[in-house]
Amino acid sequence: MRKLLKTLEERFFFVLMAGSTAFLALLLLMIITIIVYKGLPSLTWEMVSQTPKGGYYFGREGGLLNAIIGSLYLASGAVALSLSISLPLALAMNVYFRNRKKLVNGIRFILDLLWGIPSIVYGAFGFTIMIYLGIRASLLAGIITVSIFILPIMVRAMDEVMKNVPLSLLESAFSLGSTRREVAFKVVTRQCFPGIITAVLLAFGRGIGDVAAVLFTTGYTDNIPTSLMDQTATLPLAVFFQLGSPIPEVQNRAYAAALILTVIILAISVATRLLSRKFHKTSIK
């Protein structure tokens, strides 16, 4: 009798576990289906090739080109800026100050802390900095804010890869008389190149999808920005603002923007996957 109960318990939980796992797959399918179903009918050529025209927000002509280009500018700029900090930092932890465990653990601790801070707080922080420096809401302010927000994401991803560089590789590079810079930027960077690209893609995906960090800092405009000091629209902001409109045509455009954003994110995800597969084939073990 007890045995039967036990078996029943195990069966019960097995079904529950398998069910919840299957639910995850269903969930993704459901989210993507609804975004495609709602977004596809409004996703015309006009949407991706034109900026908003007069009366756009009452449902007349125009498209989302300003937001698409704005998002790409913002995310690329932020990733580039962040890379100039995060790559040296990851190399500092794994090459330059490799022999200083306490320091490296201190940095990892701070990165964990920064990583946990919500993007709205980064947005608020970016806003205070903006006021302090006297910059107005602009592409530049957005780039700076997003680059700070994706910094811990990038460094952690790179650190993960660089931690696994075998010590013997560092040793042989150093024994050839290389300086720390040469070991870091010529040997380790090359060895971890696919990992660095993965980190960049990951950060790009985060940067392009975030609203809360740019809400205060980029402003919003119907034009494509022509300089760093211009305001800019972004895709997630376009979704957010247009969904709040009472006019159905404008709401539909929010769905179209959501679909474009989802496609970009999925493309990044596929690229990352292909890359890591290729990496496994050629890396030195």
């Binding site: 013997s168 590789l169 590079a173 040997v187 030195i284």
Partner: peptide, 9 residues
């Protein structure tokens, strides 16, 4: 070294 470690190039 014990195990050869060629540079990644």
């Amino acid at each position: 070294s014990q195990k050869p470690s060629p540079l990644p190039m």
